[in-house]
Computed example of a mutant assay.
Amino acid sequence: MDKAFFLQFAGSMGAVAALVGLAAWARHGRPAPALDEARARALFAEEFPAARIDRLWIARDGKGALARSGAKALVLMQVGDGHAARCTCWAQVSAAMFRNGRLRIELGEVAAPRAELAFDQWPPADLAA
């Protein structure tokens, strides 16, 4: 074993370490920005173009939104670094459990079994059933 072997070995180890570091850094996605009313309406319009939004509530942490569209409820929730939208009936949202400042809506899907949205109170005082 000579000096060239050790130089090549050290260079290879440095390159592997750099690639491992790059792969570890690249796994971290950027967090999704907090929702505001305009962004929530835009996402709902993209997912449900035919829906007319009667009322809209944004979660206090900005990680979700709930909209009423007639007898339907449109749910927007943060998943990873993006958002997922689901449609369910308003009666299911009305019967959802609200505890510790979180509204838990059971969606019954494998991909999205439930949505948990943070609200100060539910139902809101101005909600017309």
Rank of each mutant, 00 (worst) to 15 (best):
V75I: 15
V75R: 00
L66Y: 07
A129C: 07
R55D: 15
A18F: 15
G70D: 03
L56R: 02
A112Q: 12
C87K: 10
L56H: 05
A85W: 05
F44L: 14
M77D: 12
A24D: 07
L19R: 14
A45P: 06
A17C: 12
S12P: 03
D126M: 00
G14M: 15
G64I: 00
A24Q: 08
E109G: 00
D36N: 12
I53P: 02
L127H: 04
R55I: 09
G82V: 04
A111Y: 10
Q121I: 03
A32R: 00
A128F: 00
A50H: 02
A32K: 01
G11R: 12
I53C: 03
A128G: 00
Q92W: 02
E106D: 13
P124T: 06
A18R: 08
N100G: 05
L76W: 09
A10H: 06
A115Y: 09
Q121R: 01
A111L: 13
K63Q: 15
A24P: 02
L107C: 11
D120W: 02
F119P: 01
W25Q: 09
W122Q: 03
K63E: 11
L74V: 11
A128N: 05
L76N: 10
G21R: 10
T88R: 05
W122D: 05
A42T: 09
L117W: 03
F48P: 03
L66N: 06
L127K: 04
F98Y: 05
R60Q: 06
L74S: 03
G101S: 02
G108E: 05
S69Y: 04
Q78W: 03
A34T: 08
G11H: 13
G64A: 07
G11Q: 15
P113S: 09
S94T: 10
R27M: 07
A18E: 12
P123N: 00
F48E: 01
R30Q: 07
R55N: 14
R68V: 06
E116I: 11
K3P: 04
G70F: 09
Q92G: 08
A23P: 00
F98T: 00
T88W: 05
H28G: 03
P124L: 09
H28W: 11
F44S: 03
L74E: 07
E47C: 12
W57K: 04
E116T: 08
A73H: 07
A73S: 10
A40V: 02
A95W: 06
G14V: 14
G80H: 00
L107Y: 07
H28R: 12
G82W: 13
M97T: 14
R86H: 10
A125T: 13
A18K: 13
F44K: 06
L103F: 00
R68F: 11
P124K: 08
A85T: 10
P123E: 00
Q92E: 12
R52Q: 14
A118P: 02
A111P: 05
R30I: 11
L22P: 03
M77T: 14
W25I: 06
R60T: 13
V20T: 15
D54N: 09
L56T: 04
A15D: 11
W57V: 02
E46S: 14
I53V: 14
R104A: 14
A112F: 09
R55H: 15
V75F: 02
D54H: 08
L103T: 02
A23V: 10
A59C: 11
N100P: 01
R60E: 06
H83C: 01
F119C: 06
L7Y: 14
P33W: 02
H83I: 03
